[in-house]
Simulated assay, not measured.
Amino acid sequence: MGSFSIWHWLIVLLIVVMVFGTKKLKNIGSDLGGAVKGFKDGMRDGAAPETPATPQPPAQQVSHAAPQTAAKDTIDVQATPKS
C-alpha cells in the first residue's frame, strides 16, 4: 500500500499528458532545463576567481630625480597642471 508500482506512475503520466498536452509539457521541460543550466552557469561564474581578460603591462616607475649622466642634447622639462 505504501509504494507505487511502475503501472501506477504510467497511469499518472498518461493523465498528466492528457490534461496538459505534449506541447505545453515540452515548453515546461525546456524552460526548466534552461533555468537549471542558467543556475549552474551562475554558480560556476561565482566560484571562479576574477582574472583580467588581458594581462596588464607592468607599471612604469617614474623617478623625479634628474639623471646624473644626462646627455648634453637633452632638455629637462617639468610639467605643471593648467589652472
Rank of each mutant, 00 (worst) to 15 (best):
V16Q: 04
K24G: 00
F20D: 08
A48E: 04
E50G: 00
V17P: 07
K23A: 00
V19G: 03
D41L: 06
G29P: 00
A71F: 08
A53G: 07
K26T: 00
V77G: 08
P67S: 15
K37E: 15
K37I: 08
G46T: 04
V77W: 05
P67I: 14
T22K: 15
A65G: 10
M43I: 09
F39W: 06
A79M: 12
W9I: 14
A47C: 04
N27V: 01
T22N: 06
H64A: 13
V19C: 09
A35G: 08
S5R: 13
D76E: 12
K37M: 13
F20T: 08
A70C: 07
A48Y: 02
M18Y: 05
T51V: 02
I6V: 10
D73P: 08
G33P: 07
V16L: 14
G38A: 07
A71P: 14
N27Y: 03
I11F: 11
K26C: 02
L32G: 08
M43H: 11
G21P: 00
I11V: 13
K23P: 01
L10Y: 05
K23H: 01
M1R: 06
L10S: 02
K26R: 08
A66C: 13
T51D: 04
A47I: 11
L32P: 10
A59G: 05
L13F: 10
D41C: 05
P57Q: 06
D73H: 10
G42S: 09
S63F: 14
Q61L: 13
P52Y: 11
P67W: 00
L13A: 12
A35K: 07
L25V: 01
L32R: 00
I6N: 06
D45K: 03
A70M: 13
I15T: 02
I6A: 14
V16T: 06
G46D: 12
P52S: 07
P67K: 12
A66N: 15
T69P: 02
K40A: 12
M43V: 08
G46A: 04
D31C: 02
G38V: 00
G29N: 05
A35F: 01
T80V: 00
K37A: 10
N27F: 01
K24S: 04
P55W: 01
Q78L: 09
L14M: 04
Q60I: 02
G21T: 01
V62M: 13
V36T: 04
F39I: 10
S5D: 15
P57R: 05
S63I: 14
I15Q: 11
R44F: 11
S30C: 07
A70H: 01
Q60D: 06
H8E: 15
W9R: 12
T54E: 09
A48K: 05
N27R: 09
T80C: 03
P58Q: 15
G46V: 06
L13M: 10
A53F: 14
T51W: 09
S83F: 06
D76M: 05
V62Y: 06
P81I: 11
P67M: 03
K23T: 03
K72M: 13
W7A: 09
A48R: 04
W7E: 14
E50A: 06
L14V: 12
A66W: 13
S63T: 15
Q56W: 04
